[in-house]
Design a protein around this nucleic acid. Structure first.
Lengths: 305, 305
DNA sequence: AAATATCCATCGGAATTCCTTCTGAATAAG
DNA sequence: CTTATTCAGAAGGAATTCCGATGGATATTT
C-alpha cells in the first residue's frame, strides 16, 4: 500500500481540526476530496481512523495510535526533503575542492571569503596539492572540482580556462640580467638556476617552453619557499609563476617579467564529465568563474591584493 | 513537495540495480515511467541523485546521502503500514472487554480459548464486574465492548441479544418445595430467602419479575459464593441465574428450574453507537456471536462444559 | 569498420487518479 | 417545524501517471 507525505498531512490536519470542512480548508482542498482521501487511507490501512457523525469527528483508538506514528513520519519526511531543498537552494551544503598551492595561497582566499558572504551555510573544504594530486582527487570523486594547470586533462574531465599565469625571473638585486631591456630564452642559459623537481608541473612548463634550450640547474628542491631562500643566498636564479611571486618578496630579491612564447601556464577549473555537481559545488564553481578577472590581475603582477 | 513510499521504493530499486530497465522491471513499471518519476523526484528535491550515461547509472554524492535517509524512511513507513494491516488482518491487536462475573466464570473462558486458537496474535484483556461497572467502562471507551444483562442500555449503546439466563431455585436437599411438580411465584413467599443487594441487577430482575409479590429476605449479601454457603447452612433459600449455578454444586444443595414469566435475564453484547471497533475487537465480537449456542446450553442447565 | 545490441530520455496518446461542484442524508439549533 | 451545518457520494472535468514507440549514444561483436 502506498502512502504519501500529503496523506499524513491530511490525516494530521483532520485529527487536529476534528472537522472535515475545516481541515480541508486548511489544506486547500475541497471537503469532499479530503473525505475520500481519508477513506482511501483507512481502506489502505484496513482500519477505521475516525468516528464520524454528522456533528463530530473523533479519532478512534487506532486513529490515536496512528497519530503518533504519522506525526513522527511526517516530521522525518519533511526534514529530509527540506534538507535537500536547502542544499538545492544553496542554503546548506559542503563543497570540497582541490587546487594548486600557489592558487590556494594567493587567489583562493579572497574567493572563499566572498563566497562565504554570499552562502554562509555552505561549508568549504580544500585540498592544496600539486597538479597530479588535484586530478587524482577529482577523478576519485573526493573533491567536487579542481583548480589547477591542466597540462592534459583527458577525456573524462572538462576544463574551463580561468586565467593564465606568466613566469617571472627572480634574482638578487644586483644580478646582471636586470640590465637587459627584455630577457630572452638565450639569455637564461648563461646562469645557474634553482628549480623544482622535474615532475612538478611548473618545471614541465618551463622545460617545454624553452625546448630545445636547457637551463643549467644547480639545485632541485621541492618548495617555492626553498627556492626563495636559495636565490637570495646567491645559489642561483629562478623562473617562477606570478602566483608564487609573493613568496619572493624578500629584501635581497627582485623579479622581472619574462616574455617567452609558451612560457605560461593555463589555470583551469576542472570537473568530471558525466558527473553532476551538487548545487553547492555548482555555486562555488560559478562564483570562481565570476572572479576570474581578479585572477588575471594577480597573474600579471604577482602582487597580492 | 510531496513524496510517497512508492517514490522511495523506486529510488532504492534504482540505486540497487543501477539500471533503469532492471529497476523498472523489478517494480512492475515501464522504464520510461521510472525515468520520469526519478526525474520528478530529483526536481522536487532540487538535487541530481543519479549520474546517468547510456551505459551506467551511478548515485551522485547527494544520491548516496539520500539513499540512507530513503532506506530509513521507507522502512519506517512500511513498518507502520504493515503494523496496521496486521491489526486489520487480525494478526495482531488487543481487545479489552467487560463482562459479568457469572459470564466470566462460566461461558467466557471457553470463548477465549477458541478465540486464541483462531487469532493467537491478539491479546485479550478482561474486566469482570457488575452490570453498571461494565456499562461505565464501555461508555468511557476503556473497553471495546461489554457482555452483560442490559436492563436499559440507552441510546448511545447498541445491544445484541446472545442468550437468556433463567433463574433456578437453590435449596437444601430436603426442602419441602422440592416436592412440588412446578414452582410458582406464590410458593416462594412462604420461605425465607438469602439474596444479593437491592442494587444488584440480579436482584432487580427478581424483584421486577415477581412484582407485586415480595420475597422474605432474611439476609442480603454481596457474593454468590456467600449465598451458597448460607443456603447450605439452612439460613434460607435462593433464586440464582443458571450461569451462577456452578457455585451451588455442593453436597448439601440442589437446584430446580423455576418458570415464572419475566424471571430471566437477557444477556447482550453491547457496543458504543457511532464508535468503530478495532478489527481485533470486531473479530472477538463476532466470535462471541457465533458461540451464543453454547451460552444457551449453559443458561438452560447451568452445567459447566 | 560496420553491424548489432543495450541503455536512457523524450514524446504522444491512453488510462488512471484526483479534484471540484453539486446533491443528499443526518442531526443539531432556533 | 424550519433552518443551518456537516459528512458522504455521484458526475464530470482536470491533472497526473503510465505505456509503447522512437531516437541518440555507447559498448560489443563480427
Amino acid at each position: 500500500m502506498d502512502i504519501s507525505k500529503r496523506d499524513l498531512e491530511l490525516f494530521l490536519a483532520l485529527a487536529e481540526e476534528r472537522s472535515f470542512t475545516r481541515a480541508a480548508l486548511k489544506c486547500n482542498l475541497s471537503q469532499s476530496a479530503l473525505s475520500s482521501r481519508i477513506r482511501l487511507l483507512e481502506e489502505g490501512l484496513g482500519v477505521v481512523l475516525f468516528d464520524r457523525t454528522t456533528r463530530a469527528v473523533e479519532l478512534t483508538n487506532e486513529g490515536r495510535l496512528f497519530e503518533t506514528s504519522a506525526r513522527r513520519l511526517h516530521t522525518e519526511l519533511s526534514e529530509v526533503v527540506d534538507n535537500f531543498r536547502d542544499h538545492a537552494a544553496r542554503r546548506r551544503g559542503r563543497v570540497k575542492i582541490a587546487a594548486l598551492p600557489s592558487i590556494c595561497a594567493s587567489w583562493l582566499p579572497n574567493v572563499f571569503v566572498k563566497f562565504r558572504q554570499k552562502y554562509p551555510g555552505i561549508e568549504l573544504s580544500l585540498i592544496d596539492g600539486l597538479s597530479q594530486l588535484c586530478l587524482d582527487k577529482l577523478r576519485s570523486g573526493e573533491v567536487d572540482f579542481a583548480i589547477t594547470s591542466a597540462t592534459e586533462a583527458g577525456e573524462d574531465l572538462q576544463a574551463t580556462l580561468i586565467g593564465t599565469d606568466y613566469f617571472h625571473l627572480v634574482c638578487p638585486l644586483d644580478h646582471p640580467l636586470l640590465d637587459k631591456e627584455t630577457i630572452t630564452a638565450g639569455d637564461l642559459t648563461e646562469h645557474p638556476f634553482v628549480q623544482v623537481g622535474r615532475r612538478s608541473s611548473v618545471r614541465q612548463h618551463i622545460d617545454a617552453a624553452l625546448h630545445p634550450i636547457v637551463l643549467a640547474t644547480r639545485l632541485e628542491v621541492q618548495y617555492m619557499g626553498t627556492i626563495a631562500g636559495m636565490v637570495e643566498a646567491g645559489i642561483g636564479i629562478a623562473l617562477v609563476p606570478a602566483l608564487s611571486l609573493w613568496q619572493f618578496r624578500r629584501p635581497g630579491l627582485t623579479s622581472r617579467p619574462v616574455f617567452i612564447p609558451n612560457l605560461s601556464r593555463s589555470l583551469h577549473l576542472l570537473k568530471r564529465r558525466g558527473h553532476a555537481m551538487s548545487p553547492s559545488a555548482q555555486a562555488l564553481y560559478e562564483h570562481a568563474l565570476q572572479n576570474r578577472k581578479s585572477l588575471d590581475a594577480l597573474a600579471e603582477t604577482g602582487d597580492l591584493p
